[in-house]
Computed example of a mutant assay.
Amino acid sequence: MKTAIRLSIILFSGIVLASCSGKDEKAAQAAAGQPQPYPVFAVTTQETTLDSDYPATIEGIQNIDIRPKVDGFVERIYVDEGAVVRKGQPLFSINAPQYEQAVRTAAAAISSAEADVNAAQLQVNKTKPLVEKDIISKYELEAAQLTLQSKRAMLSQARASLANAKINLGYTNITSPVDGVVGSIPYKTGSLVSSSSAQPLTTVSNTAKVYAYFSLNEKQLLDFSNVYNGKNLAEQMRNIPPVSLVLADGSSYAQNGRIESINGQINTSTGSASLRATFPNPVSVLKSGASASVRIPQHVKNVILIPQKSTTDLQGKKFVYILGDSAKVMNTPIEVMEITKGKFYVVTKGLKAGDKIVLEGFQSLKDGTKIKPEDKNTDSVYAEIK
């Protein structure tokens, strides 16, 4: 019995010793710092296009407020909101009887003035032969001629009054001044309107072309002017490639536009300058007042791009792990452009073509750590930007 107990104790002690020996071996290996595998790739220069998006507001090339020029009641509305109208097409009719009466009064005044002119002409005709025969003084003829001249002036004034009355009467029929789309119509039939009304009858927007207004801050404007060649602003605008429009739903507008205007003065309150891009709008997809983003392309050559996941941020700076001699990594600061290419940074300083950097999974790495590099195919890394 005692022999069996001794044997059991010996076996248990052996097992414990073996276990401790295994743990010591693993600890020794960990302490030895065996290199861990990390994916690395060689950076190369690329040729690509960078896109910059700027919030924009869409406006028609003409947004015309339709206001009455005379006082009266809205008698008829010939169009509906959102209707496409042509230049000269009737929009509203205003009931203003006073202008019809003014036309009749002016017409009657012309008839009276014409009668006065005829009477004055008869007096001149009667006086002239008497003066020639020295029957009456020549001053009588001069007086008759002056009266005729006065009556003719009064006739001209009456005709001008009739023309003005007809113009005012014509204002009661309101037509579209341009081709365009009708906006909201706040006044309904029977509403009293006047030239001093706060709201217009409607707005007609000519959207055959549209303007996209957007802004650049002072730094962006300087960068913008440095990117495109030209002796002056007009030449630089001609060298800007066609721009695209990103709609509110994220889709791209089918037709490209061009930047045609850059405000030369920076707004002191906002610190930005306004730019205007023009886009064709043949089927009226773009509406005045809509929001979108103007996308400006910038073609760059011989630049180094790296995945954003290959960088770390520390105190506002970006770092990458470069594979150095003896398979040791160096935590190296880099500088990148503000504009990104999808999930890639454009490196402006800190890397050169051929450098190998750790692709990902380096959270536990430290500067000077030796790793076991696993080379990744460079083309597969850059596949996303092709």
Rank of each mutant, 00 (worst) to 15 (best):
I77W: 02
V285G: 06
I371K: 04
R258T: 14
I66F: 07
A248K: 13
L245M: 03
V303K: 12
Y382E: 04
A119L: 12
I240G: 01
A143V: 10
V294C: 11
V79E: 06
V117R: 02
K318I: 03
E335Y: 09
Y139D: 14
L305H: 02
I110G: 00
K386Q: 15
I61P: 02
A254E: 08
M330V: 09
P307L: 01
V204I: 15
A115S: 10
V381E: 08
E338K: 14
V131W: 08
I240F: 03
E335S: 12
Q308H: 13
D53M: 10
L222E: 13
K2W: 07
R159I: 02
D223W: 05
V210S: 10
V204Q: 12
Q101E: 04
V181Q: 09
G324C: 13
E260L: 13
Q220V: 02
K138Y: 03
K349W: 06
S93V: 10
G82Y: 09
V16D: 01
P39C: 04
Q36D: 08
K188A: 04
I66H: 06
Q98F: 07
A353P: 08
T378E: 12
R152N: 13
I10A: 10
Q62S: 09
Q36V: 08
P186D: 05
E114Q: 05
A248G: 03
R104L: 14
S215Y: 15
Y78N: 07
K386V: 09
S191V: 01
P297N: 10
L7W: 08
V243H: 10
V124C: 07
S161W: 01
K366L: 11
L314P: 11
A56F: 00
L286I: 00
S191L: 01
G342I: 08
T202R: 03
D51S: 13
S195H: 10
T278E: 01
K188D: 05
E218T: 09
E25Q: 13
L17H: 05
A273K: 09
A277K: 01
Q89Y: 12
Q101M: 05
S184D: 15
K301M: 04
G170Q: 01
K133E: 14
N118Y: 06
E75H: 06
L233C: 11
V329P: 01
R86E: 14
F344P: 09
R104E: 12
K2G: 04
A208G: 15
S310F: 10
I259E: 12
R295V: 14
S195R: 11
A290W: 05
T207F: 14
P242L: 00
T207N: 15
H299K: 10
K376H: 08
S52Q: 12
G82I: 12
I304L: 01
D179L: 06
V103W: 00
T369H: 04
G88R: 09
V193E: 02
P90R: 07
S196P: 09
A143C: 05
D65N: 13
M337H: 09
P241R: 03
L91N: 14
E360A: 03
E47G: 12
Q46G: 08
P129S: 02
D379H: 07
I135V: 15
